[in-house]
Amino acid sequence: MPTVSLRNEWPEALADPSGRRQAKPRTKGRTMILDKGVGLHAFEDLLDLSGEYIDIVKLGFGTSPLYPLPVIRGKIDRAVRRGITIVPGGTLLEAAVRLDVVPGFFRQALELGFTGIEVSDGTIQLDRNLRSELIGEAKSLGLQVFTEYGKKLFGSRIDIDDFAATVQQDLACGADLVIVEARESGKGIGLFDERGDCRDEDLARIRSAVPNLGRLLWEAPLKDQQVALIRALGPDVHLGNIPMQDVIALESMRRGLRSDTFSLQRVPHIDYMI
């Protein structure tokens, strides 16, 4: 019987026409997906298909305590084995702050094997001192820290000066990335208006006010938002709250393999002899 080749032998240039994408572990162009509660088999299928293009998995909101123990351990183990950072949602830490059980939150996060956490105040008020303490505590425990800026209330906007100051302080405390809130809807929150369109003027002001743009991760669950940010900030922009089914579609945009970002391709100059 003839043997079947398992190699993917497309021309090398077609894999990344942009010529820019880093291999994992990436420091540029990280992709964070939002897992709202799929089963273990579906999660494993996702990693088999697109794990190479996923850098961070966030178990959304406060869902982590609701998982059967074997399932959440299985998800964490599978992510870690593929070099993917996995974090519980920021809402869970906000609940731990409100209920005064922060030590228990950290203890269980470490026991389960989470490799990062999100420090946010989208629902509660978190004073600067406590925010700094939470970042410092997580870093001392060996966790990656992703802080988040913005409220989850529909209609909330970014205060550019406050945002710039928060980014500077969070990074000084040890945060790895600062996330710009957009929720899973991507509409009427932060950088995006009620239709989900990017507020270009706000983005321009942020680019002027924040010197560490490479340390920002933009929640952008909708395709047009991803296109807008890639066009404005380049394919190495960090993007989050990506729906699980859209990982490969996003990666194709980062590489110039979709019409929306076709101009990212680096086309070699060819001299034709006549």
Rank of each mutant, 00 (worst) to 15 (best):
R266V: 09
L134P: 02
N241K: 03
G186S: 05
L93P: 02
G155M: 10
L213R: 02
L257I: 08
A164T: 01
D127M: 05
I56P: 04
Y272L: 14
P17E: 05
A96D: 06
L92S: 06
V102K: 00
K139E: 10
G39P: 08
L239A: 11
G19F: 10
L14P: 02
P2T: 03
P103I: 09
S5Y: 00
D170K: 13
I72P: 03
G62R: 14
V267Y: 09
G29M: 11
R21I: 12
G174T: 09
E52V: 10
L177C: 04
Y53D: 14
G19H: 10
F114K: 05
R215W: 00
L250G: 08
Y53G: 02
E44I: 12
T261V: 12
A42H: 10
L66T: 15
P268D: 06
P235M: 00
L239H: 04
R107C: 09
S50W: 06
R258S: 13
C198L: 15
C173H: 11
S18W: 01
L213S: 07
D271E: 13
G116L: 11
S252R: 15
R21M: 15
L250D: 11
L49A: 15
F163E: 08
E9H: 10
E181S: 09
A164W: 03
D260V: 03
L34S: 11
R131F: 07
A175N: 05
K28T: 12
L134N: 07
G113D: 04
R26C: 11
P268R: 05
I274W: 11
D176A: 06
F163D: 00
E148K: 15
L130R: 14
G29W: 07
E44K: 15
V71L: 12
L99H: 15
A182C: 00
L134V: 03
C173D: 15
F146G: 01
L250W: 11
Q168G: 02
W10C: 02
D224G: 02
N212V: 03
L264S: 09
L49Y: 11
P88D: 08
F106S: 01
I179T: 07
R207D: 01
F61I: 05
R81L: 09
M273H: 13
E118W: 04
V38Y: 07
A164H: 01
E12I: 07
A109G: 04
C173P: 03
G256S: 09
